[in-house]
Structures are given as C-alpha cells and as structure tokens.
C-alpha cells in the first residue's frame, strides 16, 4: 500500500565496516527467486538507531564478543568419553569453520536438513561421546557465535536447489502463511511493511545473516529459531519450538532471502 520511497526514508544510509577492516555488505539486489516480492535486500542493522549500529562496528563495543570468546575457549577444551575437543578434528576454528555459517542450514548426508546446532550436537554426541547442548543453552549460543564470527564478510551461500528444494518450498509456504488470531504472515510485517513502525518497533526485512544476535532487551544471545518463535507468538498463534523441522525449513527459506548479503557474525539489536 505504501510507496517504495516512503519505506526507504526510514532506513539508515550507512556502511558497515567491523573494526575498521572488515566490510560487510548490508544492502544488495535481491536474489532472482524474490522477483515480484523484493527488489533489494537489507540487513536488519540498517534499521537500528545510530547507537545500536555503532556497537556492531567495533568488537570492543559489541557485547556478543564475550560469548564468542567463551565459545572459542570451549573449541579447544576436551569433553566427553572420547576425550576430544572440536580443535582435535577441525583444527584452528578460524580455518576449520571458515564459511560454515554462510552455508547453513544445509542437507546432511542422510538427506535431512540440519541447522548449525544440529551439526554441533552430532559431533558432540556421536564423535565426542559428550552430551548434546540445548538449542538455546549458553554453551550452544557461545559456540554458534564463535563459529559465525569466522564467516564475517562472506556472502550467504545457502543451497536451495536439488535435495534442498523440498525443504525450501516448505519454508516458503510457512513464510506466507497468515498465522494466529491476528492472521499475520512473516511477509505481512517483513515484506509488506519493512521500514514502517509497529508501535515503537522499526520493522526490518527480518533477515538472519546477522545471527546469532545480542539483544539489548534481554541482555543475551538470541538464536534464529528463538527469534522465529517470538515472531509467530506475536501473531497470537500457537508457535513452534526451536529445533523443530518447521523452523529448520523456515530458516533455509529466510536465509535464501538474504542471498547477496554478508554474514555479520554477531549482530546487535535492541
């Protein structure tokens, strides 16, 4: 209902360079599959205030880096019955995990769509003899953040064709489903109304390449699935659980809407 010009008026005209040396693409032409839906894609970072944007420009000011450091420590700490650490098999995290975040979620060898959390827990339980971490537990947040940092500035590279396509199609269907008593879909807010305000909230395109993010409101790390859970709940709907197949499918589809953007590796959000 609103013109494109009006929408963009409320977005920051700014460039993201982390620590002065890592430029991040936060604005790009939309992928072909979005034709007729979006012309350009934008990071949620552009919709935040000057202060919040500044926090993400410098690791000393970005609260998520404390979590990333803890994840890096765990990376080389042996755990479980096999007495192995992540580093024993993957080497230095900066080499072993480079680009991994950009490709998630992806189909595993058994043909199942897995998120980063699933790959991590598979290594913990099947390769280390250690206990699985909860999807939204502190050690999981620390590790997914530490791994995300290693893909900073790399373009989103999720695969959506071939064996990934059926999952992608299901995620797309979810994205346009009008859930709950408010009958709102992801698109109602993040495609039709990005740039607008819903009460005090400045709506972004709901992209996930900045995740995991540090939310100032909860003073903690928020996973992709946890964000989805909150957004569906806010439509007065019965939501889904983090780690559900539905959210894996949705994650793949939403990730693909960010094709063209770069991984931020730990965003800061209000």
């Amino acid at each position: 209902a609103l013109s494109t010009a009006a929408l963009h008026a409320e977005m920051a005209d700014d460039e993201l360079v982390i620590n002065g040396d890592t430029p991040i693409t936060v604005k790009a032409p939309a992928a072909d599959h979005l034709e007729g839906h979006l012309d350009e894609v934008y990071s949620g970072w552009l919709f935040r205030t000057d202060e919040t944007r500044a926090m993400e420009q410098d690791d000393f000011d970005n609260p998520i880096m404390i979590f990333a450091e803890q994840g890096q420590e765990t990376w080389s700490t042996a755990d479980g019955s096999e007495g192995k650490s992540c580093a024993d098999c993957h080497g230095d995290i900066s080499e072993g995990m480079k680009g991994v975040r950009a490709s998630m979620p992806k189909v595993n060898e058994a043909g199942k769509l897995w998120s980063m959390e699933d790959y991590i827990n598979d290594c913990r339980t099947n390769r280390m003899g250690a206990e699985a971490w909860g999807w939204d537990s502190t050690p999981m947040h620390n590790m997914t953040t530490a791994i995300a940092v290693e893909s900073r500035g790399m373009p989103v590279s999720v695969k959506i064709d071939g064996d990934a396509q059926p999952f992608w199609e299901k995620g797309k269907e979810m994205y346009y489903t009008r859930y709950g008593q408010l009958e709102l879909s992801c698109a109602s807010c993040h495609e039709e109304n990005y740039g607008n305000y819903i009460r005090a909230d400045h709506l972004s395109q709901g992209q996930i390449q900045g995740f995991p993010v540090y939310r100032l409101k909860n003073a903690g790390v928020v996973s992709i699935h946890n964000r989805f859970k909150g957004c569906i709940r806010d439509t007065r709907a019965e939501t889904y659980s983090p780690g559900s197949d539905e959210f894996r499918n949705l994650e793949l589809y939403v990730a693909s809407r960010g094709l063209g953007l770069d991984i931020e590796g730990g965003g800061v959000r209000p």
């Binding site: 859930y179 709950g180 408010l182 009958e183 709940r233 439509t235 709907a237 019965e238 939501t239």
Partner: peptide, 24 residues
C-alpha cells in the same frame, strides 16, 4: 489487508492463547 479482525473467533491457522505461544 494486514489489519486483524477484532470480532472474529475463527477459523484461524494455529490460533494461540493470547500472546503466550500456547494453543488457544
């Protein structure tokens, strides 16, 4: 329209119990 119906009891897709995230 995205404007929610204020006086409607269904049918809805996965209706919830207010903003609890639980089933209605």
């Amino acid at each position: 329209t995205v404007m929610p119906a204020m006086y409607k009891t269904g049918p809805f897709i996965r209706p919830g119990d207010g903003y609890t995230g639980k089933a209605a």
